[in-house]
Design a protein around this nucleic acid. Structure first.
Lengths: 107, 107
DNA sequence: TTGCTATTTGGCAAAATACACAAATAGAGA
DNA sequence: TCTCTATTTGTGTATTTTGCCAAATAGCAA
């Protein structure tokens, strides 16, 4: 089994890192329903507009979202919708998460 | 569309964050082949043993890996093998990532 | 017990990240 | 042109992450 080249590992890690923030996950979920301009996205999260813009830049540089300007607004869209398929697996990790809170989902 | 509760968003983000480091991805890949003790894992990455131990702790608190002690060594195993299914999608993001700035797509 | 090996944890400094405010930029329209 | 709106970027600060060394802990075997 060949080791994954470190450059590629870093690139992969970068995608996960981009998804490693609650606000960015919120943005991804919103974009899953269709493209949105920054000002629309800003109404969904409790953060300064400049902060939202930077979060979007992180997602964009990771290749997760795309953007294009129309008029004087910038519309972001989910370039890789498959990332939302991760949630099922992630939830299964949460159900088993070591120490933290053991969520009582239902029982 | 109901918003995902912020607590759950943070929990999900934590899993992605845990995967957001090249060394930790290397550890995950190694564990995909079976359980390994810390000293074995240490030979695979170029970092201090204590650093490897901390990376493993991050993965464990995210619920991604599990560990158990046998003798005087600690064996880690991949608790949620499905995380490796993420790579296909991640690669597709990489193929499109961080290109300069997309100039126009029409409309 | 002592000594040896495996692993974790404390502590520190360097680097990266997150965030808000302010300033800069870009496009639309008067 | 000047102005307004939308967005990004500069900057300072606070927080978090990373990674090493050294010390602590745990288990095995004399």
């Amino acid at each position: 089994m060949s080791a994954v080249p470190s450059e590629r590992l870093a690139a992969r890690a970068n995608v996960f890192k981009a998804m490693g923030h609650p606000t960015r996950l919120t943005l991804i979920d919103a974009l899953a329903e269709g493209e949105r301009c920054v000002c629309e996205l800003n109404t969904l999260v409790d953060a300064d507009l400049s902060t939202v813009s930077r979060h979007l830049a992180v997602l964009r540089s990771a290749g997760i979202v795309d953007c294009k300007k129309r008029g004087n607004q910038v519309y972001y869209s989910l370039r890789v919708p498959c990332v939302r398929d991760f949630y099922g697996c992630v939830e299964s990790a949460l159900g088993l998460a070591a120490e933290p809170v053991q969520l009582e989902a239902g029982r």
